[in-house]
Design a protein around this nucleic acid. Sequence first.
DNA 1: ATTGAAATTACCGTTGA
DNA 2: TCAACGGTAATTTCAAT
Lengths: 151, 151
Amino acid sequence: MEIDRTSWKLLKALEENARLTYAELGKLVHLSAPAVAERVRKLEESGVITGYGAKINLEKVGIPITALVECQVYRTKEREFKALVLSLDEVVSCHNVTGPYAFILKVAVRSMSLLDELLERLIDLSDTNTMMILSTPVDRKMPLGIDQVTE
Amino acid sequence: MEIDRTSWKLLKALEENARLTYAELGKLVHLSAPAVAERVRKLEESGVITGYGAKINLEKVGIPITALVECQVYRTKEREFKALVLSLDEVVSCHNVTGPYAFILKVAVRSMSLLDELLERLIDLSDTNTMMILSTPVDRKMPLGIDQVTE
DNA sequence: ATTGAAATTACCGTTGA
DNA sequence: TCAACGGTAATTTCAAT
C-alpha cells in the first residue's frame, strides 16, 4: 500500500495513542474527520494496521522481572524447542535470528525462582545465555523517521 | 494495585484488542458495561494501563528489515552512546541488560545499506554483534498466565 | 446531516469490614 | 455504619453512512 506523509503521520499518532478521535487526527493532518476515517479504514483493510492494543505496565501487575534469553538450540531438538516456547506463558516474545543463537526470547516473570524453573526447561533443549533487563530507554513499535516513507 | 482474576481477564482482552466495547468486555467477565468502565478507569489511573496503541505491520510500510544489535559499549563512551541511541529514528527498542553486552537494540530499516550506515555509527562507540530477525513466532506484551495474578 | 451505538454520568441497592 | 462495588437508566458524544 502507498503511504504518503499524511498516512505516516496518522500511523505515528495512532501508534502512540489509539484513542484519538477522527476529529483530533484531522486537526493533526489538516483533513476532515470523514477523510481521516476513510484513510484509517484503508490502512486497516490493507493490513498496515493489524489491530489496537492496550499498553500494560508489567511491574504494576506484580511481574517485575524481564530478561532476554539467547538459546542455541540443539540440532535435534528444534521442533521440540519451538513447541515448548509456544506453550510457555512467560515468553513475551521470540525472535528467530541469524547466528549461532537461533532464538532470542524475552521472558517476564514474577520471581527469580520462576525464572530459574523456566531456564531449566529451556536448558534441556538448548544452551542458553540469560541477560536481565535493567532498563528500557526506548520501546516503540515503529521507527520514527518520516524519511522512511515510500513516496 | 490489586489485580483480581476479573481485572486480569480485562487486561489480557484489552492487550489483544483495545477496541472491544465495555459491553463486550462485560460479557467476558460477567459484569455490566459501567462496572467494566469503572475497573478500566482505575487500571488507567493507577498506571497499570499506560495507553493504547495501533499495531503496525512494518513490512507493509516498506520497512522489511529488522535486526537485533548487541552493543558492548566502550567504557568512556556510555553517555555518548545513550544519546546516539535516543536520537536514532531506526531504533525501535533499547534494553540495558546485565552481561558484557550492556545494550541490546532492535532496529527497523528500509534497506541493508541503511542498516550498514546505522551500524557504522554504532561501531564508533561500541563493539556490536548483529543478528537479523528471520521470523517472530511470539510477540506479546504480557505473559499469559492467569496464575501470575496477585490475590 | 442523521441515525445508531457506545461511553459517561448519576443514582440506587447490596455486601462486607 | 460506611466504604467499595455493581446494576439500571438517562444523557451525551462519537462514528458510520
